[in-house]
Design a protein around this nucleic acid. Structure first.
Length: 191
DNA sequence: GCCAACGTTGGC
DNA sequence: GCCAACGTTGGC
């Protein structure tokens, strides 16, 4: 049975528009064990996910992706030049995994965090819980469908603005995704 | 293994 | 820029 996910990424680093352009990308840079275990144990090809723009103005749900592959060794861990380089990881037993996602749809208008927060059907969303910082979290099917319905237009929309500000400070292990990102598990452009 | 110091996340 | 939350590091 399909599962549903919410994947966070800073749009300054990689946005739903970038994914629309690329079609498909590797969700690399995850350096959190819990998120890695989601990708290894629970996520399956064919699952659907909400692409969430974090650290944006405004933050919110931006579109839908499909999980294409899971449990793929993250190549950045072996790249000495990458900020995600993990010298302790060995090729025979990679520490860090990624998934590959493809573009499904870009929401008509971004569903702002404020809207998610005020929606009774989404009261249990993990990302709304205080202190939650996981870059990938599971969703109930009903939650996924509710967010998708909000994104398709209609009630509850709040700003659709997008802003391309300068990239943020580099992130470090334990968290980060991209040199210029602080979002655990954000992605870079597919090669 | 404890825990203080420090770094990161991410909304505001 | 602020700061709460929480993860990691490193001395002991």
């Amino acid at each position: 049975m399909a599962r549903f996910w919410l994947l966070k990424c800073e749009p300054d680093v990689y946005s739903i528009d970038d994914l629309a352009r690329d079609g498909r990308t590797g969700w690399d840079g995850v350096r959190n064990h819990q998120v890695r275990n989601f990708m290894r144990d629970d996520m399956k090809a064919g699952d659907l996910g909400i692409f969430y723009h974090s650290n944006a103005e405004p933050p919110g749900a931006a579109g839908v992706v499909r999980i294409e592959r899971t449990g793929v060794p993250d190549p950045t861990q072996f790249d000495a030049k990458s900020d995600y380089h993990d010298p302790k990881s060995r090729k025979e037993a990679p520490t860090w995994l990624m998934c590959e996602v493809s573009f499904v749809e870009r929401f008509e208008e971004l569903v702002a965090l404020e809207t998610l927060r005020s929606d009774a059907a989404l009261a249990n969303l993990l990302i709304l819980r205080r202190g939650n910082r996981l870059s990938i979290t599971p969703l109930e099917q009903a939650e996924f469908e509710r967010i998708r319905a909000l994104g398709a237009g209609g009630a509850g929309r709040a700003g659709a603005g997008r802003k391309g500000t300068a990239a943020k400070d580099a992130a470090k292990s334990g968290a980060a995704a991209k040199p210029s990102s602080r979002a655990k598990g954000s992605i870079r452009v597919a090669k």
